[in-house]
Simulated assay, not measured.
Amino acid sequence: MDPPVVPADRLVGWRRVAETTERPFDAGPISVTASTVRYERSDDPTPRPFCFASRLSIRPETAPNAPLTRLVERQSKVGFRDRLADRGIEAVEQRGDREIAVDDPTASRARVWTFRGDCRPVATDRGPSDETAASAVPVEALLAVWATDQYLLAGGAYPLDAGAYPNGRNAADARRELLGIVRGVRPPAKDEDGE
């Protein structure tokens, strides 16, 4: 199963760092497989902004519906918090949610959650130094979930500290850029899909 498509024109300054397929949920006859692609900004310092896009396959095949959407949203938020923790982002708090339109006219509106936390550099084999232990950077993260004929997820995180950005960029620019990427995510065309 191929991951969703992220328009190349929205990824200027980003580099693809991973593509994975995993099964985040499996209970009896019901399973969910997620195909995900992840990108990082190539020019920003640590913590480096990242974004991702995931496409879910639910078996047995089930069309999106209200109860299933609530389950996908709830499980997606739990999984996203885990991913943030893997990247050294801790003390994560949900700050709100809203709906946004995506570029795909056949899709539902996306529900977007905003989270805030602190990023501490991940310890090396030698352990954290006094400097890294004291250098937490505030981070904002966004997670969006919406439906076409399947569920799509997209989001990412970026530092809020003005000193984390080169070339006159700032957190507001990073937020606009991330939301632009999220809005552009779409499922692969039927002939592009590897299923």
Rank of each mutant, 00 (worst) to 15 (best):
G168M: 01
G194Q: 13
D130P: 13
R74K: 13
G88W: 07
G79V: 04
E40D: 05
Y151T: 05
F80R: 09
L56W: 05
R48H: 03
A164M: 01
L71I: 07
L179E: 14
F115H: 13
D191E: 13
D130K: 10
P64H: 09
S31F: 01
T114Q: 12
P47V: 07
P29H: 00
G155H: 07
R111I: 09
T124P: 10
L160C: 05
Y158S: 02
R169F: 03
A123R: 14
I30G: 00
T62G: 02
Q75P: 00
L160W: 01
S31V: 00
P138I: 11
A85R: 15
D193K: 09
F25A: 02
D104Q: 08
A101V: 12
G155S: 09
P3L: 03
N170I: 02
S108I: 04
E73I: 13
R95N: 10
P3D: 02
T124C: 02
P128L: 11
E73Y: 03
I58T: 05
L152K: 08
V78K: 14
I30A: 02
T62D: 06
L142T: 08
L56F: 11
L153K: 06
D193V: 11
G28I: 00
G13K: 02
S35Y: 00
P4W: 02
R81I: 14
D193I: 08
S54Y: 05
P7V: 07
P24D: 01
